[in-house]
């Protein structure tokens, strides 16, 4: 739906606007990677004049493009038409996006599953540590108070271990 909205219908705009649309879709045959709209080469100027002439004759955009394809070959179009082999150019991006998104979601799912195990493994043997914990507290000058029981989720309060 959005794509049809995005395109302007040919009859809604002036011939000049259509001309600029077209000149942006045709490559300059003698320049490197420039459209005839941007190029000042003689052939681009002639092609621009031809586009204008064809528009005034009442040709449609696709008729004009075909006219140039017939004379200069397919590479005169700045973007390949979505037919035949060139359809591949247009379909691939869709695959890339869909593929990317699905890989992302698979990865997310995968990462969630491994979660449960990861949390179980990491738990340390805390009773062995009490001696060192005291040393840490002396290093830091911490004098333990009893508030800590209120919040400790695992009930494996450090204070219990210490005592």
């Amino acid at each position: 739906m959005m794509i049809t909205f995005g395109c302007i219908r040919e009859e809604d705009i002036t011939l000049e606007q259509r001309m600029h649309q077209l000149t942006n879709q045709l490559m300059c045959p003698v320049c490197d990677a420039q459209t005839i709209d941007g190029s000042n080469a003689q052939i681009s100027q002639d092609m621009r004049a031809k586009v204008r002439e064809l528009l005034q004759e009442g040709k449609s955009n696709s008729e004009i493009k075909d006219y140039f394809v017939l004379r200069y070959g397919e590479d005169i179009l700045a973007a390949p038409k979505g037919i035949g082999f060139n359809l591949l150019a247009w379909i691939m991006p869709i695959f890339i996006v869909l593929g990317g998104i699905s890989i992302a979601f698979l990865a997310l799912k995968n990462m969630r599953r491994s979660n449960t195990q990861a949390t179980l493994i990491g738990t340390p043997k805390q009773h062995e540590l009490s001696k060192y914990l005291k040393q840490v507290d002396t290093d830091l000058g911490i004098h333990e108070d009893k508030n800590s029981e209120d919040y400790n989720p695992n009930n494996q309060s450090v204070d219990e271990i210490k005592s």
């Binding site: 490559m27 459209t35 590479d75 700045a78 973007a79 390949p80 082999f85 150019a89 890339i96």
Partner: peptide
């Protein structure tokens, strides 16, 4: 893909195409 497509087109069917801003 857009940068390389002209090469594929050349190789696959010997027709050169341009892939530029509109694409």
């Amino acid at each position: 893909w857009g940068v390389l497509f002209p090469l594929f087109s050349d190789l696959a069917r010997d027709v050169s195409v341009s892939v530029s801003a509109p694409y």
